[in-house]
Amino acid sequence: MRQKTNWVVTILLIIGSITILFPLYITIVNAFKTPQETAKSILALPQNFSFDNFTRAIEMTNFYQAFGNSFYITLFTVILTVLTNAMVAYAIARNMHRRAYRFLFYYLVSAMFIPFPIIMLPIVKQMSSLGLTNPTGLIILYVVYGLSFNVFLYVGYIKAIPKELEEAAIVDGCSRWGVFWRIIFPLLTPMNATVGILTTLWAWNDFLLPLVLLSERSHQTLPLVQYVFQSQFSVNYNLAFASYILALLPMILVYLFLQKWIISGVMKGAIK
């Protein structure tokens, strides 16, 4: 039987797609234009596609240093997040019958509803007093701030893993630590991938936390160096758009190739 088309949903999807694709089109098209061509029309295609804007953007932003900073911060954030958050979630998931662990779970989940600007200044002051206004401090904050959402995903997934697997391993002489690393952690591969990808997208694209925490220019990440195109009275949009594309391209590729892990992992963690 032929299904009827839901025109309301279809129209909403079309509007949503246009809302997303239209700014992306403007960014890409104007990244290859001269300021004169942009002044005439921001919608028209460039007369001659030129990569001069990209070359100048790389020079003005010190792109390779900023790229290295973003890569370093993102890499270690993902590694530490997956390792530590998985252990915390395992401890909570296997002890939810205890009041303390149940309280800890709901306490962590409730932290997702606290806006960062509310605690921004106290956090910056505390990190400054500890001498951690650098990439290392930023990595620590990313790992801690990601704990709430990641524990929520991990706990739902771990609950679906039969406890009999752990009991059998313990009978065979495996320690609790060994059970986690040899049995549980390999079974968490789909969720580890999901958490890793989401953390990568967040740490790479984040602007506010590096802005308020990093004190030295040599530590700036790719989102921060976009300020170089903005003067007191104007913005060089052509160079800015070119730089935006350079900064976003790695994460766009990551999402396009790994989006199935993100969607499936979130669904499994929420439903199970």
Rank of each mutant, 00 (worst) to 15 (best):
L132D: 04
K260P: 01
L138R: 01
V144N: 00
T77L: 07
G16I: 04
N192F: 02
I15S: 11
Y237D: 03
V124M: 08
V143M: 05
S110D: 04
L201F: 05
F152G: 00
L258A: 13
G16Y: 06
N62M: 08
V82F: 02
I118M: 15
L248E: 06
I158P: 01
T10E: 12
L209G: 03
S264I: 05
R2A: 12
S218T: 13
Q232F: 13
M96W: 03
I158E: 03
T74F: 02
L256T: 08
F149N: 03
R182H: 15
S50E: 13
Y107P: 02
R2N: 15
E59H: 12
V78I: 14
I184M: 11
R217M: 15
P122T: 12
L187V: 04
F149L: 11
I28P: 04
G146Y: 01
F207K: 05
V266L: 14
F180S: 05
V171G: 09
S17L: 15
L21W: 11
V225Y: 02
V143R: 05
G137C: 07
P210E: 01
R99C: 08
F149S: 05
L24I: 14
A39I: 07
E166K: 09
V195G: 02
K268A: 15
L75A: 11
L239Q: 08
A193Q: 10
L248M: 14
L130M: 14
A57K: 00
G131M: 06
N238V: 06
Q220L: 15
I139N: 00
L239N: 01
L83S: 09
I197M: 06
Y72S: 05
G156T: 05
V171R: 10
A89S: 11
Q3C: 08
T55D: 12
L213I: 00
F51S: 08
N30C: 07
L214T: 01
V151M: 07
L21D: 10
T84N: 09
V9Y: 14
G137N: 03
A111W: 05
Q220T: 10
T200L: 09
A193C: 15
M112E: 14
I197F: 03
P186C: 10
V212A: 10
I271W: 02
Y244R: 07
M1C: 14
K272G: 05
K125P: 00
V212R: 06
T81W: 01
D52N: 13
L209C: 00
F63C: 01
L21Q: 12
A270R: 10
P210H: 02
F152M: 11
S218Y: 12
T194F: 11
L12W: 10
T136S: 10
A169P: 00
Y90C: 09
F257E: 04
A31C: 07
L214D: 04
V144T: 12
M112S: 11
M191K: 01
S231P: 00
L121Q: 13
Y90H: 12
Y64Q: 12
L258I: 08
L130H: 07
Q220S: 15
L12G: 10
A242K: 03
Y255C: 10
G269N: 03
A66F: 04
A247W: 03
F180C: 07
G146P: 06
S50N: 14
T200P: 03
E59C: 04
L21E: 11
S231V: 10
I158G: 02
S128E: 13
I263M: 13
